[in-house]
Amino acid sequence: MGMSRISPQRRRDVLVAGACGVFVAAMIGAAYAAVPLYNWFCRTTGFGGTPQVATAAPADILDRKLKVRFDANVAGGLPWRFEPEQNSIEVKVGEVVTVSYRVVNESARETVGIASYNVSPPTVGAYFSKINCFCFTDQRLKAGETRDMAVVFFVAPDIVKDSEQDGVETITLSYTMYPARQTEPVRGENGAAAGRS
């Protein structure tokens, strides 16, 4: 059927429907575009307790003191023991601090893990900056190996300018060790266990 047999009315219908179809495709695209955008948004603004990555220490150290608690978890499917050296410390705002976490591979095989991290309350993410962290890279541990891993962080001095953070006395830095890059589908070898333990 050639174009000549399509009535002008029909052409208008196809035009409107086509525009709607393009729109639907664009919205599906937008849903997928939200994934990198959300990731970028969290990293940039500290939204949802996403700590910042810093390359240099802040210029000044303030008198305000905060308690920083350290939390360590191991997700199912990873035969590791994982704990902070100290449960909590007092830091001055702007002071660069190094703390250590210890991880032990309790199994008889080499395993690879990577830590996810965030801080609580979620609104201090923008002011919690890490200069270095074991969570930036995969950790590969031989059978039975023990490793001490460092986190270098500071609480950014800008926190005192944000009135919403005035009531904050304690910040909790939390890590969860996962088996590195789950390539199996969820119902694979570490399926049910992963969600439940």
């Binding site: 939200a34 949802g48 996810s116 996962y178 789950q182 589908p185 969820v186 119902r187």
Partner: peptide, 20 residues
């Protein structure tokens, strides 16, 4: 795809976020 094909859109272990 998270459930069946190993993507990690909402899985923290692969850099995803359930909040998304």
């Amino acid at each position: 795809t998270d459930r069946n094909f190993g993507t990690t859109f909402f899985t923290p272990s692969g850099g995803g976020d359930p909040l998304l």
